[in-house]
Design a protein around this nucleic acid. Structure first.
Length: 1060
RNA sequence: GGGCCCGUAGCUUAGCCUGGUGGAGCGCACGGCUGAUAACCGUGAGGUCUGGAGUUCAAAUCUCCGCGGGCCCA
């Protein structure tokens, strides 16, 4: 049986109730189990990082996933959909360090690595629970019970296995390179972990004295990192530039400088030089090999061991001085240049950013605080030409926001440079949504990729599975736990985290020595890189991997181009030589209302929970989906969420409105025979069924290519336009029929089928409200129906029911009705008052056809007695015409009589003139004056009680002339409507009967209404009705109304039923 | 500085690929309906389509150069 429902859409309680229902009945797992053995759909969840709460962007991400996965499930595909969690790495370490008040790695060592990593683990697990709860509340269905977690041994083994693959293919190597280094976290960080932000630094011009120049000439360099001067080894120039030797004058002194010729003016002007003369000009190539003296050599004894001279480099650009200071230990370009020319890598900076003994006088100073000291030292030696402050973009550690430094260290790398070609060709084989995500954006990023530094000098991460021999230096990569236990002769289990694995010693097979693990952990991006096989439990289990891999689909935000799309591709090409995914949807970012990015520091973050508690998860979901194309950035807008909430409320009302009638009539859809009912369907019913089937088609087309916004908008439009604003309005009177009537059943049937189908297709988008409606509408009747809507199959569009001609005709019909309503409004004629006639003038055959098909609809919706369609050349007889004489034609012909002719024309019978002109081309006026066709034109004259309105294919005229019949009906309907309002005020039930007294002190109106008494009685459910001019008005409620200037008093009493 | 994307009414957007009178929704104003009713519907006002240049008979749409925003990189 159907049940009546709450009058208001209350998403919060509804969604809570539905979530309980899902849990209690294990709907999620049944929905997945059910399709076991069917075509698989292998989805890999991009793992969110377990730092705390989910935000709007992560919510959007999961909602996109959820819609697609629910849709696939309804298509009876078998999903592989383990949720994933990224649980290692610096962000969590930093949080724990903050919590424990740590300042450096030393604090961690003192505290104890095992205690520290268990804190990290506990923190990650706690956040995992909280975030899972939040995702579930959004209605996101993934395998939350058995997610993949990067901290699990099983997962770590997948990473180790991959690392071993890399080693076996000679793609893993140890290198001494300049890397991004965070002096606070004391670790290397990957390019992908560097975030750029504005920062102010000194911008300095420094002289390096040339050796043996004779004239005390200096080469002029520029830098924003004074601390690297300490490690200077060389100067680079561009051999194709022109350089100059300049004598510069300032405050009565002069000096000799060498730098780029084109930059003389700006540099000397900036440094406040009064004048200069160019002594010599030469090409950059002429400078190569010249030697200079390190500026601080007296303070840094180690520098005396190095030669300093000038080298050519293409990367030198024509800005600043055109001479670049080179410190191979502190810059990637510098390092590469050093490698090319065999320069020493001088890196006198320790892990914590302080100078080592090699830095001489600077030992133990922190490179971040040393700027002033270096500048003073340069200045006192007369080597600082100019200094100022500049604001520029500078790299910072992604987690602790400390400015990074470049530092030459020994690190472990994956040799991406060898794989680039394969990676690029694999990109081509992947389907990208949108297409440019792969074609342009990702391609560009991969093209510029360098070898991947995967080692981190930290604690909480996947330990690098590399053991090095203390004696011979050989290394071994361990591919899994069993291998480790065997090699390390471990009895029992071992946790694959630091510090436990650090203690494992392995015998060296080469020299018999002892091998110890490299102390590093993995770059956390390497963790998620192996997700596509780790989620299938490969390599510990191979079956699923062989059957399912690579992934059918993944989706993440466009920041993941450099992140997960890339790391997965790299790891996969290392392991298998192919891309790990078949299709990728790249989605956008969530921005705040003014289009700026959401960030904690700006205080403009919006949390999904906040939105849900106001409007519910369904509103948020449909908003997120309908608002943008998935790949565009989404500007969050509260107002728009509210609008979606309203849309769902309208859906709720549409669903609620027929229920009381259906219940009263004990309507049971199962007892309706579709074949029999077909004969009773009205055209509007067939239209509705056509529309809903077209909707299914539109959704299929859109979802297939991930145009989720089109799909969501199609649903919204259907609910608002087709259902609420139109079909429900048409069908209402039929539901009020009290007897058993096939016309009513046809309406019920149509409404029922439409709602049922609609909720099915809405299920992926708004899973809560869809479930709620399904439970009543479908489960309410049918115990055998699926327990949940989310176990149902996606409906197939029934082509037989789709009638595009009917849909087009109805489109025209709606336009016509709107035009008529518009016209009525111009004359302020309320809909309650019928009009005599509507005349449509149109040359369109489609209009004629629409009126033929939907005449009854138009009559009813416009409350008109008659519709007439005229062709363009026909004229409705109620329209008059008027002659418009053309003085420019009449004047020349009639000269001084022209005025008279014009007057006569205006007085003439326009219709007679027109027909005469049409037939003979001329018309003879009273005085025998003949006028011809070109002398006049005609203008339509619209009577006062006729109103006009345009529509796309023509014009409608509405004849609002009042007559007795219309006045009678108008007053009758006024009485009905007033009585209904009183019933409402008295809070009567729909089936309650009343006694009605109507007093109108105007005998004419009473007489007008009299014939309508039976109709009024039945409309307001009156058992007894009295109408008169001077009756005593009685009733529980008595009210006086003013209707079009007529006083009407209505008395209303509820009739007690016999047994009361 | 470079790559990719976005910029249409106060707000959110359709249209752009394939050039031919810019459509919606929200908000606002006015009205209607009243057995969906603390709901619903209609009408109206509101646009130098981010600025400029070019191609063309014709540009929101194609091309180029700016400006603003986002992501990524240097």
């Amino acid at each position: 049986m159907l049940r009546e429902i709450e009058s208001r859409y209350e998403p919060l309680s509804l969604e809570e109730r539905i979530e309980d229902f899902w849990i209690k009945n294990k709907i999620y797992s049944i929905s997945r189990e059910k399709n076991k053995g069917n075509k698989p759909f292998f989805f890999v969840d991009g793992p969110p990082y377990t730092t705390g709460n989910i935000h709007l962007g992560t919510g959007w991400n999961k909602v996109i996933k959820d819609v697609v996965l629910r849709y696939r499930t309804m298509h009876r595909e078998y999903l592989i959909d383990r949720a994933g969690w990224d649980m290692h790495g610096l962000p969590i370490e930093v949080k724990i360090e903050e919590k424990l008040g740590f300042k450096s790695k030393k604090d961690i060592e003192t505290f104890g690595v095992s205690k520290f990593t268990s804190e990290c683990k506990a923190f990650a697990l706690k956040n995992l629970d909280e975030m899972t709860r939040q995702f579930k509340r959004l209605g996101v269905w993934l395998n939350w019970e058995d997610p993949y977690m990067t901290l699990k041994d099983e997962y770590i083994e997948a990473a180790w296995w991959t690392m071993k693959q890399a080693d076996e293919k000679n793609l893993l190597f140890k290198g001494y390179r300049v890397v991004n280094w965070c002096p606070r976290c004391e670790t290397a960080i990957a390019d992908a972990e560097v975030e750029y932000a504005e920062r102010s630094d000194p911008s300095i011009f420094v002289r390096f004295r040339l050796k043996g120049s004779g004239d005390d000439a200096s080469i002029l360099i520029w830098t924003t990192t004074p601390w690297t001067i300490v490690s200077n080894i060389a100067v680079a120039i561009n051999p194709s530039f022109e350089y100059a030797k300049v004598k510069a004058f300032k405050e009565g002194k002069s000096e000799i400088l060498i730098f780029a010729y084109d930059l003389i003016e700006p540099v000397l002007k900036k440094a406040r030089y009064e004048d200069y003369e160019v002594i010599e000009r030469f090409s950059g190539a002429d400078l190569i090999g010249m030697r200079y003296e390190h500026p601080l050599t007296d303070l840094i004894p180690k520098q005396q061991e190095f030669d300093h001279s000038i080298y050519p480099a293409d990367f030198v650009e024509m800005d600043n001085t055109g001479c670049v200071h080179i410190a191979p230990g502190h810059g990637p370009d510098d390092f590469d240049l050093g490698q090319e020319y065999g320069l020493p890598v001088f890196c006198p900076v320790k892990e914590d950013g302080r100078y080592s003994e090699d830095a001489g006088a600077y030992v133990n100073l922190n490179v971040r605080d040393v700027h002033e000291r270096v500048l003073d030292d340069l200045d006192s030696r007369g080597l600082l030409l100019w200094r100022e402050e500049v604001t520029h973009r500078y790299g910072h550690c992604w987690r602790c926001t400390t400015p990074i430094i470049y530092r030459a260290t020994e690190q472990w790398f994956l040799k991406i440079s060898d794989l680039k070609e394969t990676m690029l060709s694999e990109i081509e084989k992947v389907e990208w949504y949108p297409e440019w995500a792969g074609r342009s954006r990702f391609r560009d990023w991969v093209s510029g990729a360098m070898d991947w530094c995967i080692s981190r000098q930290r604690y909480w991460g996947i330990p690098l599975p590399i053991w090095i021999c203390d004696s011979c230096g050989d290394f071994k990569v361990v591919g899994g736990k069993d291998e480790l236990r065997e090699l390390g002769k471990i009895k029992g289990d071992i946790e694959l985290h630091r510090p436990y694995v650090d203690e494992v010693e392995i015998g060296c097979s080469g020299c018999g020595g002892v091998m110890h693990r490299v102390e590093d952990v993995c770059d956390v991006w390497f963790d998620s890189a192996v997700a596509s096989w780790a989620t299938l439990r490969f390599p510990s289990m191979c079956e699923d991997f062989e059957r399912l891999w690579p992934a059918d689909w993944i989706t993440e935000g466009h920041d993941q181009t450099r992140g997960w799309f890339y790391s997965q591709l790299g790891a996969s090409v290392v392991s298998f030589g192919v891309a790990p995914y078949r299709s990728v949807l790249m989605h956008g970012f969530t921005l705040d209302e003014s289009g700026n990015k959401m960030s904690k520091s700006l205080g403009n973050m919006v949390e999904p929970g906040e939105v849900i508690s106001k409007y519910g998860a369904d509103s948020l979901r449909i908003y997120l989906l309908a608002s943008n194309a998935p790949w565009d950035d989404l500007k969050f807008n509260w107002n728009e969420v509210a609008t979606r909430n309203r849309m769902l409320n309208i859906l709720w009302n549409v669903y609620r409105f027929p229920l009381p009638y259906m219940i009263l009539d004990a309507f049971d859809p199962r007892s309706v025979d579709p074949d029999t009912i077909k004969g009773h369907l009205r055209v509007e019913d067939r239209w509705m069924l056509s529309r809903v089937n077209s909707l299914i088609k539109r959704l299929d087309e859109a979802i297939e290519v991930y145009e989720l916004h089109r799909a969501a908008r199609a649903i919204e439009e259907f609910v608002l336009e087709d259902l609420s604003r139109w079909y429900v309005q048409l069908v209402r009177p039929r539901t009020w029929i009290e007897r058993d009537d096939p016309d009513k059943i046809a309406a019920y049937y149509t409404l029922y089928e439409t709602l049922k189908t609609l909720t099915l297709v809405m299920a992926p988008f708004t899973p809560f409200i869809a479930e709620e409606i399904y439970q009543n509408l479908v489960r309410g009747f049918d115990e055998d129906a699926e327990v949940s809507i989310h176990l149902c199959a996606w409906p197939n569009a029934d082509e037989k029911l789709i009638d595009s001609r009917l849909e087009r005709d109805m489109g025209i019909t709606r336009e016509l009705v709107e035009a008529v309503l518009n016209a009525r409004q111009k004359l302020k004629r309320k809909l309650r008052w019928p009009v005599k006639e509507v005349v449509i003038v149109s040359g369109s055959a489609d209009v004629r056809s629409a009126v033929e098909v939907f005449e009854a609809v138009i009559l009813k919706q416009t409350n008109t007695k008659k519709i007439t369609v005229l062709a363009e050349d026909e004229r409705w007889e109620r329209l008059g015409i008027e002659i418009v004489p053309d003085p420019s034609k009449i004047g020349p012909s009639f000269k001084k009589d022209a005025g008279k002719v014009i007057g006569m024309l205006k007085a003439a019978d326009a219709a007679a003139v027109e027909s005469a002109l049409k037939e003979n081309g001329s018309y003879v006026l009273d005085d025998g004056i003949t006028v011809t066709r070109e002398m006049v034109s005609f203008r339509e004259v619209i009577p006062d009680d006729v109103s006009v309105s345009d529509f796309t294919a023509g014009v409608v005229y509405v004849d609002c002339e009042l007559n007795r019949e219309i006045r009678a009906e108008g007053f009758a309907r006024e009485v009905i409507r007033r009585s209904q309002e009183m019933r409402k005020e008295m809070d009567l039930k729909m089936e309650d009967k009343v006694d009605l007294t109507i007093v109108i002190p105007d005998a004419v109106v009473v007489e007008l209404i009299s014939p309508w008494i039976d109709h009024i009685s039945s409309e307001v459910r009156a058992a007894k009705l009295e109408l008169g001019v001077d009756l005593a008005c009685s009733g529980d409620t008595i009210k006086e109304w003013d209707v079009e200037g007529v006083k009407i008093t209505i008395g209303l009493s509820r009739r007690r039923s016999e047994d009361e």
